[in-house]
Amino acid sequence: MSVLVFLDQADGHIKKSSFEAASYAAKVAELTGTTAEAIVLGIVNDDLATLGNYGIKTVHTVAEAALNNMDAQVFTNILSQAVENTSADVIVFSNNTTAKAIAPRLSVKLKAGLVSGAVALPDTSNGFTVKKTVFSGKAFAHIAVSTAKKIIALNPNSYTIVPASGSAAIAPFAATIGTAKVEVVSVNKVTGEVPLSEADIVVSGGRGLKGPENWGLVTELADLLGAATACSRPVADIHWRPHHEHVGQTGLAIAPNLYIAIGISGAIQHLAGVNRSKVIVVINKDPEAPFFKAADYGIVGDAFEVMPKIIDAVKKLKGVA
């Protein structure tokens, strides 16, 4: 028995959300009286022994450059071999686009019940149930998994890392890799930006900002706070901002520690994607804007007057001239 966590990597580095998944896997292992192991595919430059600090005993590696790009079929085949090799009965992913491509396939291949979008540790007091978000963040469901093997895809920012100490063993894994049926023609990454799904702080703008030329108010604050930027749907639809920044029911659902909404009304479809944020700040000139009902802090005021002052205050706080 073991709990196996899939570590997702990009450009040779383990993604932040995978450390959360690793710590979660270690806790699941503790709860079920077994050990947590990890697997990483492709060439990684990080010191994998440090996974011990997240409670991982062994990191299995398949260090093949061919695996630097994810192919859902190839990855699923390797993971199913790793599951067998480690006798894993719980497999943990961070619920990102990689997991969404692989976990469902692995679920079929292993006949393992899948809970995607998990937000809490499994409850093993009566069977095996896992809490997940449903209705785009408006509610939760407790999913009972009835199969011997179980797959959990944990939402980013929903589990607090529990520090552990130790050094993980590194075990190269001789997997049969197979050939990909999908050819990757090109990869185009936005570098230097904080990925929205993993960001601790998100600064977001809506139609109230009047036009793309005013987005400096959003990006300057975001840069100061090391935050990612987001926007409401109409803002992406009218091409003031790129589509990948669109959050809400039909965009990305996020759960940062801090979400700052500037000139966004807070329509129910917008709230669905952001209401799991720990602290919500709303800046809107309309005191009746529905967003204030979902907010923790707010200013009723004109963003064009308020934002420069906020930016100045943050600069002062951060000691930036």
């Binding site: 019940g113 907010a295 923790d296």
Partner: peptide, 16 residues
């Protein structure tokens, strides 16, 4: 492979 045991609504916000 799975079934829904129960649903839950998120706790209400304390107020702005």
């Amino acid at each position: 492979l799975t079934s829904i045991a129960s649903f839950e609504l998120p706790p209400a916000k304390a107020g702005v």
